[in-house]
Design a protein around this nucleic acid. Sequence first.
DNA 1: ACCTGGATGGAGAGCGCTCTCCCACTATGC
DNA 2: GCATAGTGGGAGAGCGCTCTCCATCCAGGT
Lengths: 350, 350
Amino acid sequence: MSEDLPSIPSSSTLEDVARVAGVSRATVSRVINGIRNVDPDIQEKVRQAISVTGYAPNRAARSLVTRRTGSIALVVSGAGDEGEEDPFPNRVFGDPFFGRVASGVLGFLRPLGMHPVLMLAETAAAREQVISYLRQGNADGALLVSSHAADPLPKLLVDAGLPAVLFARPPRPIPISYVDVAHRAGGTLAADHLVARGCRRVATITGPLDVPASQDRLAGFQETMARHGHPYIPIVEGDFSHDSGETAMQRLMAEHPDVDGVFIANDLMAQGALLVLRDHGRRIPDDVAVVGFDDSSAALACRPQLTTVRQPMEDMAAEMTRLLLSHVEEPERRVTSVIFEPTLVIRQSA
Amino acid sequence: MSEDLPSIPSSSTLEDVARVAGVSRATVSRVINGIRNVDPDIQEKVRQAISVTGYAPNRAARSLVTRRTGSIALVVSGAGDEGEEDPFPNRVFGDPFFGRVASGVLGFLRPLGMHPVLMLAETAAAREQVISYLRQGNADGALLVSSHAADPLPKLLVDAGLPAVLFARPPRPIPISYVDVAHRAGGTLAADHLVARGCRRVATITGPLDVPASQDRLAGFQETMARHGHPYIPIVEGDFSHDSGETAMQRLMAEHPDVDGVFIANDLMAQGALLVLRDHGRRIPDDVAVVGFDDSSAALACRPQLTTVRQPMEDMAAEMTRLLLSHVEEPERRVTSVIFEPTLVIRQSA
DNA sequence: ACCTGGATGGAGAGCGCTCTCCCACTATGC
DNA sequence: GCATAGTGGGAGAGCGCTCTCCATCCAGGT
């Protein structure tokens, strides 16, 4: 139609570059993808032609033949039950937890020039969308961060034969790779620390007990406390939210006003719990020592700042991404799980 | 190579569907895309063939010819200065602000079967990556959420002729669409409320004053206070972070221990400030009334819960997305800006 | 009976790229 | 000298889809 106006470089193609460089399309492709040997002189000519034409490879065309998109999905599969139709899926991202995971994923992908596609999968319809999105070749695989225990998405992905990696061990064993932290060991760290501080009347606020992570943190904590001579400790179940931390601590104060140490299964709940302890006139950590879990941004927002069991989430997220890419690369690869060790970050609250 | 094993449906193509339905590729395409009239009987046959074959259209192939990817980038352009090379771009997503924007974007895109690609653009290299990512046709346009004032990315996008919409008014006018809230009006709401409560010695903690939003919130607040007979009010500048809220409030307490009302330019700083006020023994709201800005999740995590100026961020983000899609659809479209009205959400802090 | 025109389906040309062939050329071995 | 292997470049066939033509059919007007 229109002659190229010099001012509008539009998008030039491999063909254009080849013409300018005086070589064939194939050779340009070889230079770009670094495949096979190409004469250095010709390489140089091609590179110049690329910068002259302002060439940028067309991903669609490449995908069409390579059967790879070079992008992956980051699926946040919240607690949402069926039938929930919140038009604005709130506070899923508000969770400081998500921030660190996203950072880890982005940090790993960035050097590769890749970027994740953000998807939510709360409802059955949304899960269908995820599957068909992947099947259409919009992304090569999925990273799944699932907050709910009975999330059916992992199984759907496995059944569809789509590469996927989970952020946490699935409640029921299915053949899928995942990364996780040694929750049990985390519980042990918290117990040891509280005991070492001299706490004698220790309690714990757990996460929702249908989640493996919650169970394991509790088990590790109980076990270790038992070993230290405290076989029975008060337990209140929360749901990982700020509010539930407050509620749980209210109850704890009512039923066991004499506690002098609390292990709380995540920082967000701990943040809520600290407010309640303060309202009850307890000095932290002198009257009551508090240990959280996660080392999320909430831990720093607490006053006093929270002593907490740190999950290396960025590293875990990066590893999760690495695992996914290797599954994409090599579909027959065996499923793997990588478990990270938690560490105790000591601040002011215990 | 290998015959289709019936157990592995692999991916069937338009051609397969056409064969099963006994029609041509073109007709199947027409049915799928709902273009032109197709005989109802044939439509039905095609639909059945689609479900029999488990067909899912290949996005790469479609993109190649339509020159559309059907996906957009959500670019978070943080404060990061040049040379910063944080491998894990922390706390950008921890900000409760981001959560609501993401929700709005996802909420709008979801019914369209679209999902945003998450990108960070802190450094010059990252900005280059964004541009070339778009130029390669990985996404049709960009939503830009920029926290820093002097972000060069908007201009880069405009210069490259790439469709983009900003979440806030750019500091320097450039031809680009954006959504924003009437920050000035928000400042007015806060001032009116504090005065109506009977506050006489009012102060404010602002955001970084090189950001238009901060300037406008302050201007609206000052203006209105002046109209109420308070032409001079103490001002401390913060940087929107939790910590800076604490620091600023410390200073305010030191310099003006008698304040009885504070307008704080975002909830995160307000959260920090409340802790300081509490440490100084001030009862909220009786001794000091506090009004925040944003109505982010932080407002609910405050004790007492924060009275705050609400930005309808989900609606703004949805509108931003709508604007972007219309620019993608119609490249010659005039740039537009849409300004939303803030509202005052009254809780316990004022 | 003929022409016109509105519907509707099919044929086929690409979109921009990769990758398998194949060819030309040089270096090596007998 | 000739067969053999190795190296580097070109030709061209698609990847799966859309979309422009074109062919066909059936009304309706003359």
